[in-house]
């Protein structure tokens, strides 16, 4: 019987270790993912509107409410007008089709954006808050 008990314990332990590793890995993944928005600077909307070219190539986080949809093209994405928190001005943002799901007017999103050529605010990721 002792021999069979050792055999059983030898099988359970690796499984337990794998489970713990997976658990830690998952936690690390989610923690890493959340810090992808929170670590970014918030886009200075006023400065951007006055001189968009100064912000080309930068990544920012934007917490904003959807004001309206300006344009949509199938397979490409949509251009939205959003109102950033703490601002009365609206910004145009492009949400690629691969990023956005169902987006409704009035919803609030936290977005990770990059300022692309021509001053385009390109949304790389977003999530509701």
């Amino acid at each position: 019987m002792p021999l069979s008990s050792h055999k059983t314990a030898g099988k359970i332990l690796p499984l337990l270790i794998v489970g713990i590793v997976l658990l830690i890995g998952g936690a690390v993944y989610f923690l890493t993912k959340g810090s992808a928005f929170s670590n970014l600077e918030t886009l200075p909307a006023e400065q951007y509107l006055n001189k968009p070219a100064d912000f080309l190539g930068n990544d920012y986080a934007i917490r904003a409410q959807i004001d309206s949809q300006i344009n949509w093209q199938k397979g490409l994405g949509r251009i939205l007008a959003v109102t950033p928190e703490g601002s009365s001005m609206r910004l145009p943002v492009f949400v690629p089709e691969s990023v956005g799901g169902n987006i409704h007017i009035g919803q609030r999103f936290e977005m990770r954006v990059r300022i692309e050529e021509g001053g385009l605010i390109y949304v790389e990721a977003l999530r509701k808050y």
């Binding site: 968009p52 300006i70 009365s88 145009p92 001053g119």
Partner: peptide, 16 residues
């Protein structure tokens, strides 16, 4: 200048 995104932002500001 073909800066359409910036132009769009300016139009939105004017519309505000």
């Amino acid at each position: 200048d073909s800066q359409y995104a910036a132009a769009l932002a300016a139009y939105l500001m004017a519309q505000d």
